[in-house]
Write a protein that binds this DNA or RNA. Structure first.
Length: 484
RNA sequence: CGGGAUGUGGCUCAGUUUGGUAGAGCGCUGUGUUUGGGACGCAGAGGCCCUAGGUUCGAAUCCUAGUAUCCCGACCA
């Protein structure tokens, strides 16, 4: 009892919500190395589910998986000026191996544009070799000063897509296509609504021509960049001489893209769906969608209960519902209930002797915390299947409603301050594009321009630039928020 | 890299002020009684007290240095 109260109080403290949920739900644990985490089986299962969905999307859009090495010659990073400047401070470097100091140092990949371009240059010679569309699932290392479980760890897992095209427009099309796939992944499967849009110069990827991102809103009112897609144009191709012969027998540099999402998505799910008890998982990525808890009594009734539970399991399997059957007899059901609630299992199905006698079972919905007794045993699998769909939809709707409540249009800095400090969430505004004013946002409000959204909602002829107060039709619409 | 906190059985911590050779709760093992929302009894196992020096007859405790992790800022997916 004491433990329960303590945990609940803990969760109210928003600063430790992420840590508490990740640890309590056994998604991850701290490693002996600063900033690194161990992804535990339950957390990794979520990643595997996300990975399976996205991997199919990637393949369905014509990409192939490959694997490039983790060690990159240090000189590679230096070939692209902006790139080295952006990544040098956060690179871990291998200086010794085989008991000797290395002549050329190796960088643990912070991202793979350089080594991949080195290979692309060898593989591409003609426009007939294009487009070349590669993806890899890998780990990367970025020596961040401050880390948080899932949201920012020293080593993390991700996928990075790298493509080469014969024209800028084709690369641009690819950049936006993958951005839209990310949006689909987040909204349809993780139930996390996102804004798509372009990053400002100061926020774009080091070495890119332009960067697009998906921006999600967490339940604490902060924004999270949940994925990025870059049009690299010819920046890396020029640095690595990734050239091809055109149809007209001219030499041209390849037009490239890169795009990635990481285990940060699990952080997005945690911070996007939770309550005072703990995690709430969307059914489509839950390691198990239903947990079956039998009520055991150490007598003949158990045989009935266990036999019936096994039958239900067969029915769930037939409908492709993933499940966990917890028949441990040394733990009371109360503890089990609490454990699976903290883990965010979408539905709990309780199978007990008294209910079964009357042909009933009991269902508990994690997202609404509602319990339904006397649910007919007959047709339970179909009932659960449709309930899972409902939960998936409701979670997205809940997040959409939350985002709507926490998005305001602001016309001046006072209104912005009110949103950032009191209402929290996104502020939608107009901006004249002045970089100095963007920097002021960070200094004065500790907020940033999350993106120039694709979905415009403001009228540039009416809403003035939030900094200058001037109305001008070429002002850009922006989304401002405090971010992770 | 600054600021703060903390390193004691698997976990959460007490003990440190005032040195005397280590405790509690939970968990774990066995066993019995329980069982429809966090049960209880009995019997057990389990600890280089972060590391290295120093002071002392004697250090978890005092001194010095180091180290690690967490939290808060500057940097970032």
């Amino acid at each position: 009892m004491k433990g329960q109260t303590k945990e609940k109080d803990h969760l109210k403290d928003s600063e430790s919500v992420l840590t508490d949920i990740a640890l309590n739900a056994q998604l991850a644990d701290y490693s002996p190395v600063k900033g690194c985490m161990v992804i535990r089986p339950y957390g990794y299962a979520i990643w595997e589910n996300i990975k399976a969905i996205l991997d199919k999307m990637i393949k369905d859009t014509g990409h192939e998986n490959a694997y490039f090495p983790m060690l990159i010659p240090e000189s590679f990073l230096q070939k692209e000026a902006e790139h080295v400047e952006g990544f040098a401070p956060e690179c871990a470097v291998v200086t010794h191996a085989g008991g000797k100091e290395l002549t050329e140092k190796y960088v643990l990949r912070p991202t793979s544009e350089t080594i991949i371009n080195h290979m692309f240059a060898k593989w591409i010679s003609s426009y007939r070799d294009l487009p070349l569309k590669i993806n890899q699932w890998a780990n990367v290392v970025r020596w961040e000063m401050r880390t948080r479980l899932f949201l920012r760890t020293t080593e993390f897992l991700w996928q990075e897509g790298h493509t080469c095209h014969a024209s800028f427009d084709e690369a641009q099309e690819e950049t936006l296509l993958m951005l839209s796939k990310y949006k689909e992944l987040l909204e349809e499967h993780l139930a996390v609504p996102v804004h798509t849009g372009m990053k400002t110069e100061s926020e774009k990827f080091a070495g890119a021509h332009s960067t697009y991102s998906i921006e999600a809103l967490m339940r604490d009112g902060k924004a999270l960049q949940a994925g990025t897609s870059h049009n690299l144009a010819q920046n890396f191709a020029k640095a690595f001489e990734t050239k091809f012969t055109t149809e007209n027998n001219q030499q041209d540099f390849a037009y490239q893209t890169s795009w990635g999402v990481s285990t940060r998505l699990i952080g997005a799910v945690i911070m996007g769906h939770h309550d005072e008890i703990g995690l709430i998982l969307p059914p489509r990525i839950a390691p198990y969608q239903v947990v079956i808890v039998p009520i055991l009594k150490k007598n003949d009734e158990n045989i009935l209960v266990l036999t019936e539970a096994k039958k239900i399991i067969e029915e769930l399997k037939a409908l492709n519902i993933s499940y966990k059957f917890d028949d441990r007899d040394n733990i009371s059901q109360g503890i089990k209930f609490n454990e699976y609630e903290q883990k965010g299992v979408p539905i709990r199905l309780v199978v007990g002797p008294k209910d079964l006698e009357n042909g009933f079972v009991e269902i508990h919905r994690r997202d609404t915390k509602s319990k339904e007794k006397d649910v007919p045993r007959a047709g339970i699998a179909e009932r659960l299947k449709s309930l899972l769909d409902t939960i998936q939809k409701d979670l997205l709707q809940r997040a959409l409603d939350y985002r709507k409540e926490h998005t305001q249009t602001v016309k001046n800095l006072d209104e912005l301050e009110d949103v950032l400090n009191n209402k929290t969430g996104f502020a939608r505004a107009m901006w004249n594009g002045d970089v100095a004013l963007e920097a002021l946002l960070k200094e004065r409000f500790k907020a940033s321009i999350r993106c120039i959204p694709d979905q415009r909602e403001l009228d540039a002829k009416i809403i003035p630039c939030i900094f200058s107060g001037i109305v001008y039709q070429n002002n850009k619409e922006i989304l401002i928020a405090k971010a992770y």
